[in-house]
Each structure stands twice: as C-alpha cells, then as structure tokens.
Design a protein around this nucleic acid. Structure first.
Lengths: 294, 294
DNA sequence: CCCCCGTTTTTTATACATAAGAAACATATG
DNA sequence: CATATGTTTCTTATGTATAAAAAACGGGGG
C-alpha cells in the first residue's frame, strides 16, 4: 500500500544523469548510482529495470549501455514523486490558508482524511508533527483545535525570532578575522546585489536566499532548538506568502536592502550597529507579516 | 482494540468521589459527574454501570443511591489507567536513560514495538511527537537516530532557557504594583519556605514546585513557543532525575534557596539584581545537570 | 580481499479494521 | 421548557496487513 514515489523521483533523476552522458556510454555501477541518487540499491535496480524495459539502456553481463536518450515525456509527473505525507502537508496548508479555517475551528482527523483522500493514520501523523508550529493544539481523547494564523501568532513568533537572531548576530560578529565565514558573508552580499540588480525578473528567488542568509548567521553557533525554530519560520514564510502575493516584489526589495545593511553592520563588528540593523530588519518583516494577515 | 484506560481512571476517581459522600446519599447527575471526572457522559455511564454491578450503588428510577463504600482493592492498578501511548513514553525513557542507547544509536520502530509489546503505529506516533525534544532525528525512508543525552544537549538547552527566563523575569518585574501576581509570588515564597523547613522529608516535592514557579514567571507574558519549550525542560528534569537520584536532597535545597533569592530580586524590581539572581540559578542548575551526565 | 551484482530478509509507509470514548439526538420527567 | 437519562452515530486510539524501500547476505571475478 506504500506508494512508489521514491522510485519515480529516482527515475526522473536518472533521466537527468543519462542526459549528461553520451550514447553508447557505460553507466556507473549500481553502488555509485545509489550514492548519486540518494536511494537504496534496491530502488536503483528498479529504476534500471524500468530503463531497460523502455529500451533506454541495454543490460549486458555486468554492464549497462545507453541505447537512446530518454524523452522528457517519460518523466513521471511531479505530483507522483511526492510521498503521501508530503501531499498531505500541502493539502493541509491550502485548507488552512485558503481561509476554510478560522481560529477556534475544531479539526477532525476523519474528516480531513476524507477530504484529502488519504488514510487517517497519515493525517494523524501529520498533525502530530505539525503541532510544533504552534498553530494547532491537541485535546485528550478528542480532536485538535486550530488556533489560527493570527496577529498574536505573528507577534509571538517574532518575539522569539528577535531573541534568536540578535544572539546569533552578536556571536557572528565576535568571530576572529581569519574565520571562513567572512568569505561566505561576502559572497552572500554578492548574491544579494545580483538579485537586486535584476529584481523585477527574479524577485521570487528571494525567499530561498533569505532562508540561506539567516541559516548562515545561525550556523556559527549551532543550537538544535534554534535550528528547529528556523523550520517554523521557513514554514510560515513559504506557505503564507504562497497564498498572499500582494506587494511581493516591493517587500522583497526592502528586505534585500535590510540584509545588505546587516551585512555591513556585521563586518563593522560594532555591536550597537548590528543590533540596530537586525532589529530594523525584523521589525519591518514583522510589520509586513502583520499587515498581510489583517 | 482501544484500551479502556479512560474508563478505569474514571472508575478510580469515582471511588474517591463516593468516599466524600455518606451511605444512602444520592449521587450527582450524570452531567455533573461528567464535569467532575473530566470524561464524556458515555464513560460516566459505564462507570456507574460498573459500580452498580459491584453493588456499590443502587440505580433506582432516575437516581443512584450509595449502598456501601467501595473497598480500596476495587481500584484498578495504576498501570491500567495509563493510555498505551503514555506507557510507551515511559518505556522509551527508561530504555534511553538506562543507558541501553549511546549517541548515534539507530532506532528501529519495529524493534522498539516488539521490545515494548505494542503496535508499530504507536511507536511511530510517539517518535514523531518526541522529535521536538531534540534528542532524536529522522532520516528519510529509514529509521531514527538517537543523538544522545549529552553535554552539548544540556548546553544548548540551557542557552535557550537562559534567554527565555531572563526575558520573562524582566517582564515580570515591570508589572504594576496592583497586579495580582505579586500576591501569587508571595504565596510561592511561602511554599518554598515551608518545603525548606521540612526538606529532609519532603525534598522530592521540589520538582513539582520548581515547575510551577517557572511557569508562574513565564505566564505573565504568554508566548506559545516559550511554553512549548518549557515542556522540554519539564521532560528533561522529570525523567533524567528519575534515573539519577544522586545528591537529590542537597541539589533541591540549593535550588530552593536560589528561587528565594530570585523572588526577592523580583520584588525589588531592580533589573540588575534580577539578572544576577536568575543567571546564578540557571548556572547552578546547568552545572548540576552537566555533572550528572558526565 | 574488495567491489559488483543477484537474492533474501527486514523495515518503513500507508491502508484498513474495530473497540472505546465522545458527541449528537431523542425521549421522559418534574 | 429545562434538565436528566436512554439511544444512536461519529471519532479517536490502537492493532494488523502489505507493497515499497532499505539493509543484509552470498557468490563470483578481478
């Protein structure tokens, strides 16, 4: 009853690998492919069997030769490469952010399972994991309550975020000159400037850069609880702004400039400057989020 | 297949309720009992049926009379009143803290289920919830890795704890004189003094008082993420010290005195004093934990 | 002896089944 | 008609089943 999404994803990835090779070339060993694809050898063999069956490769004794380049239409559609649990996450977020749920709504496992067309087990597992985001709460022997994507959620989120980011930024600035992070922060600045130069076309790339930037700063003094909190932030921004595109370009441009200011402050090693730049950025991010919730 | 632990717990609680009433007295209505017992009316009726069957009460038309006081041995044993998921939690903690697991150990759902004598579903659900404590990590399509109850875990835990508690203590001190919390903190002080006076006999009561004290301070400015983190702390102390009783009395006495110092600092409203008392307490708690891990 | 591939065993992801418990509905009684 | 009990329906907690994926095992060739 398990779905074969791992296989399908690996199959698609294999198409890309073959694309980099010439006709008639020999494929790497199963073990090598296993590492490249990040799956077990069992799955590699299944993929290879599939490729053989389609005439893309020929399996000779102990080697596999590329016979023809796979067509793009052989790819499995994206949706079939997502585990059921991942699909449930998307469905749930959509349900939540589309506004089908207002604060206080009771969440019914059975009903969600029916609505999403999956087994209750999966919904249950998802809700248990999702609990850490602070948007739902469980009641003993009964269902869950949706607490709402509200202003107070945003405020509490940002209170913690501010504590964590200020802490990381200070530790960051205290690193010795020789540390490799100063190189990394410079390339980070370059990436920001590049994006800014082409902001009209590429403003949607910011979200990923944002996440990378904050993770770089946090990574200098790892703390599992802070990292876990970053997941919350990532989730919020990823999904929330996926359903709320208003002013996206302008919003991102402002954030990029704030990042640049923070980078400069970090390089100055001046605590007061850093605090100010950091707080400024977070305040503006918070206001933007609050604005979009209201 | 669901266990009837809810019923058994309610049954035991009902024995206590009947204990407060006289022979021949009439029991409260089903709805009233429902509220008192904190279960559904369905369960109340099942309990009443059980009491009838044992001759403890007599059900006449629309009323139930106490016929004889239930004997203590009618109680269900404690273990049967714990949901399977709760039992799994205990089993897992024991497995972990007894030292059967060293850092890096791979956790196998099937094996744990066999070892604990429960369904894999339950183990899976437990691990998913337990993830938030930062002690285990999931790997895609494979099992879990136990990261170890290590010194770095303790350090990371206390880094966050310090941020959160200092924040709450400062906000606490900023409350106006008229606020009811000042009354509450006074009775908190009284509770501490009482415990201290009888420390040799009651040192084990500290754990619960500790939790209540920290929650009182945190509660003045609620933040769901901080509250959720408190669960981590509670779990750590609850289970860890359950398996590590060394110096418990002395440890708790020191902590009580530190709490009293913090209470005094709070009442002084002097930020510098508060910071110092708070940090002192946390440092000592951290050292104690580190010491007991090594 | 180490890597490669074929085969077998074990584990995970997901579906489904069912008793216990909660909630909703219906009826009776003061 | 409001509140209490009797009855029915729906939901959750927990167990079992199974295909997919991972891991372990084993023989053969360089």
């Amino acid at each position: 009853m398990r779905t074969d999404t791992t296989f399908k994803r690996a199959f698609n990835d294999m198409i890309d690998i073959i694309g980099t090779l010439d006709l008639g070339a020999e494929l790497p060993s199963e073990n090598a492919l296993r590492t490249q694809l990040g799956v077990s050898r069992t799955t590699v063999r299944k993929v290879l069997a599939g490729m053989s069956a389609r005439g893309i490769i020929i399996s000779e004794a102990h080697k596999r030769i590329i016979r023809e380049q796979p067509r793009q239409k052989e790819r499995y559609p994206k949706k079939e490469t997502l585990a059921i649990s991942e699909q449930v996450e998307t469905s749930f977020m959509e349900w939540m952010l589309r506004g089908d749920a207002c604060p206080g709504t009771e969440i019914n496992e059975t009903e969600l399972a029916r609505k999403f067309g999956v087994a209750t087990t999966i919904v249950r597992e998802f809700l248990n994991r999702f609990q850490k985001y602070g948007l739902i709460e469980k009641r003993q022997n009964a269902g869950w309550v949706f607490k709402g994507f509200t202003a107070s959620f945003a405020l509490e989120l940002f209170e913690i975020r501010e504590m964590f980011e200020m802490r990381s930024a200070r530790l960051f600035a205290a690193l010795p000159d020789g540390s490799p992070v100063w190189k990394q922060i410079q390339s980070m600045r370059a990436a920001h400037l590049e994006l800014l130069a082409d902001i009209d076309a590429r403003f949607q790339d910011f979200s990923e850069l944002d996440s990378r930037f904050h993770r770089l700063i946090t990574a200098v003094a790892p703390n599992r609880f802070i990292e876990s909190f970053q997941d919350v932030i990532t989730m919020v921004f990823h999904y929330h702004y996926q359903w709320n595109k208003r002013d996206e370009r302008a919003r991102n441009e402002v954030a990029i400039r704030e990042h640049l200011a923070l980078i400069e402050a970090l390089e100055s090693r001046n605590i007061a400057l850093i605090d100010r730049a950091c707080r400024l950025h977070l305040t503006s991010a918070r206001e933007t989020l609050l604005h979009s919730i209201a």
